[in-house]
């Protein structure tokens, strides 16, 4: 069980958090203009890398705020955490992974 550093609350037990999958998947500006294929990509397809992965997490049993993280899916280690950008969160640039 991990200790996850909520950007607002500090380190908390993993059970307080919920996983939100891949970060920076933008809701399409105009879904109606997308092909079925393009729409399916948005709805169902997410990256699944073995290694560092930019993700969204939410501190469900704490401040209830979403944040971004880069985590290594091999070791589960959080490489960095930070707030989602103030504007277009899914498209936002996530905090850089610290090597």
């Amino acid at each position: 069980m991990q200790l996850i550093a909520c950007p607002w609350c500090g380190p908390r037990e993993e059970i307080e958090f919920s996983y939100g999958g891949q970060a920076a998947v933008a809701y399409p500006a105009d879904p109606a203009s997308l092909s079925d294929e393009q729409w399916a990509r948005f709805v169902f397809f997410r990256d699944n890398p073995k290694g560092p992965f930019a993700e969204r997490w939410v501190h469900s049993a704490g401040c209830r705020r979403w944040f971004g993280a880069v985590r290594d899916t091999r070791t589960y280690e959080f490489l960095s955490v930070g707030p989602l950008s103030a504007t277009t969160a899914r498209t936002s640039v996530l905090p850089e992974a610290t090597p």
């Binding site: 069980m1 991990q2 993993e14 059970i15 919920s18 996983y19 993700e55 899916t73 091999r74």
Partner: peptide
């Protein structure tokens, strides 16, 4: 375990 992971181990809770 809810998160993506290739580690062949999970959380104890």
């Amino acid at each position: 375990d809810t998160y993506n992971g290739y580690g062949q181990r999970g959380a104890f809770h």
